[in-house]
Simulated scan of single mutants.
Amino acid sequence: MINKVITKNNNFYYMTAALVVLLLSASLVKSVADGMLESLLDGVITATFLVCVVSLGIDKSWKRFMQGLIVVWLIAAMLKRFTPIPNIDLFMLLLMFAFFWGTFSSIARQILFSGSVDGNKIVGSIALFLLLGLMWALVYLLILALSPHAFSGVEHSVWGQNFSQMAYFSFVTLTTLGYGDISPNTPFAQVAVYMEAIAGVFYMAIVVASLVSSGLAHKET
């Protein structure tokens, strides 16, 4: 049923919407009772994973790998709920990063420097940008988990509580706004921050060049 609704002509619309819902949900977790925090965020993340898999189902090699990641993610989430396992949070963050990286790579192969430019492809470039910011947010959460004082303006807590703050900081850095309310304290954190700023500048240049060249190639054809 879902495969009939999500097609290669509109798949990026659904994926971008799922990523936006994930960001909005993460911003609301602090207003939710502690007992519901993990269930809410884990549920939204799982739903986002499923939408991404269905949306990119045409990439068969990618799909099998990501389906495996979803299964492992669900097992890790259940183990975290019922069995205290050391460093399970770090493992879940790494799984999320791997999933978003795979999604990013698959989208990039489909929209950058290939085919004609349409609304779906433009929305796909927005999804790429959101995934880039989310991946760097996960990097910051990993750094924060290993070094609680790596960032000023962020309280050390479980990653679900800090997800929204680090996503905010990530997109502020990616767009080079630099508000300064959150800042890196350690050398490694500082390197990660300016590397993201560089990635954000190059991303805009690459996407614009890709869309322009694809549009010109299609017009000539």
Rank of each mutant, 00 (worst) to 15 (best):
L174C: 06
I88H: 00
I182A: 05
L28Y: 09
K121A: 05
L93T: 03
F100A: 02
A217L: 11
F91W: 07
M1N: 14
W62P: 02
N3I: 13
A199H: 03
I206T: 09
I2F: 15
Y168A: 02
Y179N: 09
V212Y: 06
K121R: 14
L90I: 15
F202D: 13
K8W: 08
V201L: 12
P84F: 01
H149M: 12
S116E: 15
A33E: 15
L128H: 01
G119P: 02
Q67T: 09
A209N: 05
S152H: 10
T221G: 14
A33T: 13
G124M: 09
L41D: 00
V158Y: 03
S55M: 08
T186H: 07
L50E: 06
G133I: 05
L130T: 06
N9I: 11
F202H: 10
S152L: 08
K80N: 00
A33V: 10
G215H: 07
L134V: 11
I206F: 06
P148L: 07
E38D: 13
L37T: 13
E38K: 12
S39K: 12
A217K: 14
N162P: 00
A209Y: 04
W62C: 10
Q161E: 10
M135N: 00
P148T: 08
N162S: 05
A192P: 03
K121Q: 05
Q67D: 07
A167N: 02
A98V: 05
L142N: 00
K121C: 06
A189T: 09
W101K: 13
W62F: 15
M195N: 11
M204C: 11
V32C: 08
V172H: 05
L132I: 12
P184D: 12
G153K: 07
I2K: 13
K60W: 11
L22N: 05
G153E: 11
V139E: 04
N162M: 06
T103M: 14
G180T: 14
T83Q: 03
I122G: 04
M1Y: 14
P148F: 03
L138K: 01
I126Y: 07
